[in-house]
């Protein structure tokens, strides 16, 4: 399956919905979207990965790049993911300590609000 991307605002946070496979072929599109959002001054991001079927290290690189960009503006990039197959790659690479990973979008928003 190819990659489908969408985004919408919720409670002042931009939610990025990702569906499909994030790999060496499709990751550039996600990268472009994250860059576009930051360029449009969206610095509080939640990437909803509940419909992601595959994620490799190229995809991880894009997410780390996005995090780096929003942090340059004192922003945040949290993830929503409950799928074990996706969480496993975050664990292997130690990135569970870098990203806030939540079970639902609402939980991610609430956690972000609590930190403010």
């Amino acid at each position: 399956m190819d990659l489908k991307l969408d985004h919408h605002g919720k409670d002042g946070i931009e939610i990025v919905d990702v569906e499909g496979e994030i790999d060496v072929y499709t990751a550039p599109r996600l990268r472009e979207l994250l860059i576009e959002l930051v360029n449009n001054r969206f610095y509080q991001l939640v990437v909803n990965m509940e419909k992601v079927e595959f994620l490799d290290s190229t995809g991880l690189g894009v997410l780390v790049g996005g995090l780096k960009r929003v942090r340059a503006h004192d922003g945040s990039l949290d993830l929503v993911c409950t799928q074990e197959r996706i969480l496993k790659i975050f664990r292997i690479t130690g990135l569970t300590k870098v990203f806030g990973i939540h079970d639902t979008v609402d939980e991610a928003i609430a956690a972000r609000r609590a930190e403010k």
């Binding site: 550039p28 990268r31 860059i35 490799d56 290290s57 190229t58 991880l60 690189g61 894009v62 780390v64 790049g65 780096k68 960009r69 790659i89 292997i92 690479t93």
Partner: peptide, 19 residues
């Protein structure tokens, strides 16, 4: 070119070794 911020070199290998 155009890759933007990437994960550190060798992360792909680290993932393979982990899997």
């Amino acid at each position: 070119p155009g890759a933007g911020a990437r994960v550190p070199a060798g992360l792909g290998i680290a993932v393979i070794e982990g899997l």
